[in-house]
Computed example of a mutant assay.
Amino acid sequence: MTMVAPSSTLQRIELPTGTLELRIDSGATGVDELLGFAARANAKRGFLFLSKVLGKHWPASPRAMLAVHERLAATVPPVDGPVLFIAMAETAIGLGQGVFEAWLRAHPAQQALFLYTTRYRVGAGPLIEFAEAHSHAPRQFLHEPTDPALHALFMAARTVVMVDDEASTGNTFVNLAAACQRLNPGIERVHLATITNFMGPAAPGELDARFGLPATIGALVDGQFTFAQGPLPPDQGAAQRFEHDADRGASSAFGRLGIDHAVQAPTALATRLAGEFAPGSRVLVLGTGEFMHASTLLGAALQARGVDVVVQSTTRSPILTWGAVGHALSFPDNYGEGIANYLYNVAPGQYDHVLLCFETAPGPALFALADTLRARLFHFQSEDHVEEVPVR
């Protein structure tokens, strides 16, 4: 017989792809606000813990997202020396950058560097490759900073903080930490900051041995799960077509090559847009793929000006329409990989205004999506240069 702590809660979720059994040991009182369940169109893993505060698969309030960033930043233990923050693509890029910026606000005298993993090459600098084995797109990359000052900060880092929406096995974190250590043997400790930690109650005591370093974890929800695979989902086709020398138009300005400061919010743009919207208008600020955080900052600036706004992003993740996913759109990706991208829980006409934000050059895929959603297009060319692109 399995003994359950009095404070634990048990859930059994029957998905189209199998049966998920979940035990929540801490954070249960807020779990419904943080988490939903979905079925992946992925034979490697048939379930998804769908976060409601990432602004990815679910429309999220920018204010609620920023509050989560603050809470996770507060889990980082006191540290000496520079800190390297790494966010995990693609789902947690915005989360990780927000946690990094919240930590900077709380520790203005300390040095820190932010990078995020990616599935695109930017420039000709060296790449660190590692695997996310259960992913639909398993190859991930981390760019070494090419700016000398940022590279020196990378090499001086003594603590690595890795940020993701979920920790289930921890294997991807271990793979990435080992890759970073090979470049910077001076790394002394690891901290994991996740919305949900489902590695189980024994995991914290095992982290030091797994990483070969002192390691800690901070999460808003802790527990564990089992999943019994059911019928395999239909094949959704390739979710990744990496070509080593292909330029996909991904920007170097927002964190792929390193950044040591908070990204500027487009406040002038927010002020102009807020003045254009009729009172009571419902607004969606929509990021694209790995481009998430700058659009979130636009949403937060609009919300601060009284606009009824939510934030979300397109994704390459194939998810079935079930559970926390009530609607799905499929369309070509704007990075030109030739793979399907998706938008969940957004139907055409659902919002009065849709602001489609992107980092790549505008092209047919973006114009087609803008037409479907009756959206306006905003090209973020740098932190302080955002251009509205006329919709043809």
Rank of each mutant, 00 (worst) to 15 (best):
E101V: 13
Y342C: 05
F378R: 00
D165T: 06
E387Y: 04
D25L: 12
A137S: 14
E166I: 08
S61L: 10
P62D: 07
V285L: 07
R392D: 15
G338Y: 03
G287P: 10
A300V: 11
D25G: 09
A87K: 03
A102P: 13
M292T: 12
R119G: 07
E387R: 11
D247M: 00
T321D: 09
T75V: 12
D165A: 04
Q111F: 08
L15N: 04
S295A: 15
P78L: 02
V190S: 05
A228W: 10
T314G: 01
A92R: 03
S252E: 13
Q224P: 11
V307A: 00
R374F: 04
G237Q: 02
H353K: 10
Y351M: 06
Q240Y: 04
R182V: 15
R119F: 03
L48H: 02
R376C: 08
P59S: 08
I259S: 05
A73D: 06
L366R: 05
T194W: 11
F242Q: 00
F130N: 01
N171V: 12
N197F: 10
L192Q: 07
V68W: 04
A177W: 02
G186Q: 10
G36H: 00
S168N: 07
Q264L: 15
L15S: 01
Q264S: 15
A274G: 07
V53A: 09
R105Y: 12
H143W: 02
N341T: 11
Q181C: 15
V122L: 05
P78T: 08
I319G: 01
R119T: 08
R182E: 15
R40E: 14
T226Y: 05
P234C: 05
A156T: 11
P138C: 02
A370N: 01
D384Y: 09
Y335K: 05
D80I: 12
G249P: 01
T146H: 01
S317N: 08
L176K: 01
G280Y: 00
V161S: 01
R40P: 10
T267W: 11
S251E: 00
S61K: 06
A365G: 08
A375P: 01
A109M: 12
R376G: 13
G306I: 08
